[in-house]
């Protein structure tokens, strides 16, 4: 069980990731706001409580890995990494600028702490499977985590990897699906519905759980349960809200990639600050 103190710490960490992501995207006036906001809590749990990483030695061989398969949520990951000390917070303001180390989609060669290059949807899960397989061969204690989008689960390659890793029983692989029900063109339900994800993955031989993806305590408990399922690959379906906590994005249908005004962002940051007061 998460102590009350730790729970509070994770909520605060999530709040800070959300704020830094808003400022980071705010500097540009556009970006993948929806899918960044919906994974803030899982990032807080991973980088605040679960993952063994060393900001001073990002390439440490026994570290846990994260493959952000939905690579377009890079800005949220960068905020988490900066807050964990992988690079200075000021660097977040260089997002997408020519020559930056923070490109729109996650890039292992550019950003300290990023473990895999992603952006072409469907490939990150397979790469995570490869990492987990390789680390298992070495008898490594490391875990490999990966975050998929729900729209991404329409990619055929996802189901190749789900079949393979279900059969391989990779106890060191823990997958999150950001099930925010929305994709670029609208609602998943209207475009190409996914059905019951947990049930589908279970049928492929995975240890599968459903949790509230904005409840850090619930995510943390689910990770512990997944870690304990030693003979199985694990998936945690995060029920989330796309755009969560960003007043101009949350609840909007077309919030995958948005343009916004400075006033909208100022309002969003004011709302975010107000939200922060409730955490105290």
């Amino acid at each position: 069980m998460l102590s009350m103190e730790k729970y509070q710490e994770l909520r605060t960490f999530a709040h800070r990731i959300r704020g830094e992501t808003l400022r980071e995207l705010g500097s540009l006036g556009f970006g993948h706001i929806g899918g960044c906001m919906s994974i803030v809590e899982v990032l807080a749990v991973l980088y605040g409580a679960v993952m063994q990483v060393d900001a001073a030695d990002p390439e440490w061989s026994d570290r846990d890995r994260l493959v952000l398969s939905k690579g377009h949520a890079g800005p949220a990951l960068y905020a988490a990494l900066a807050l964990r000390g992988f690079f200075p917070l000021e660097m977040l303001q260089t997002l997408n600028q020519g020559g930056t180390r923070l490109p729109s989609h996650a890039d292992r060669c550019l950003t300290p702490g990023v473990d895999m290059t992603t952006g072409s949807l469907g490939q990150g899960l397979s790469a995570a499977v490869g990492m987990a397989w390789g680390l298992r061969l070495d008898g490594s204690p490391s875990f490999v985590y990966t975050i998929l989008g729900d729209g991404e689960c329409q990619e055929g390659q996802i189901w190749e990897a789900v079949l393979f890793a279900g059969n391989a029983g990779l106890g060191n692989l823990i997958v999150f699906i950001d099930h925010n029900q929305q994709q670029l063109d609208g609602w998943v339900q209207d475009i190409n519905p996914l059905g019951e994800l947990r049930q589908k993955w279970e049928n492929f031989g995975w240890h599968a759980q459903d949790v509230d993806g904005h409840d850090t305590a619930a995510i943390y408990e689910a990770v512990l349960s997944a870690q304990a399922a030693k003979g199985s690959s694990s998936v945690i379906v995060l029920h989330t809200v796309k755009g969560k906590g960003c007043s101009f994005a949350e609840g909007e249908t077309m919030n995958h990639h948005m343009r916004f005004t400075q006033e909208q962002m100022e309002q969003a940051l004011a709302d975010w600050e107000k939200e922060g007061e409730t955490l105290l």
Partner: peptide
């Protein structure tokens, strides 16, 4: 037996998985 993997008929997964293996120091 531990270092040879038949993934079945899934070339796309195989190539990305190989990349993941290379990322943890293997030569796939």
């Amino acid at each position: 037996p531990r270092r040879v993997v038949n993934v079945g008929v899934q070339e796309a997964h195989m190539v990305s998985m190989a990349a993941g293996l290379a990322a943890v120091g293997k030569i796939p």
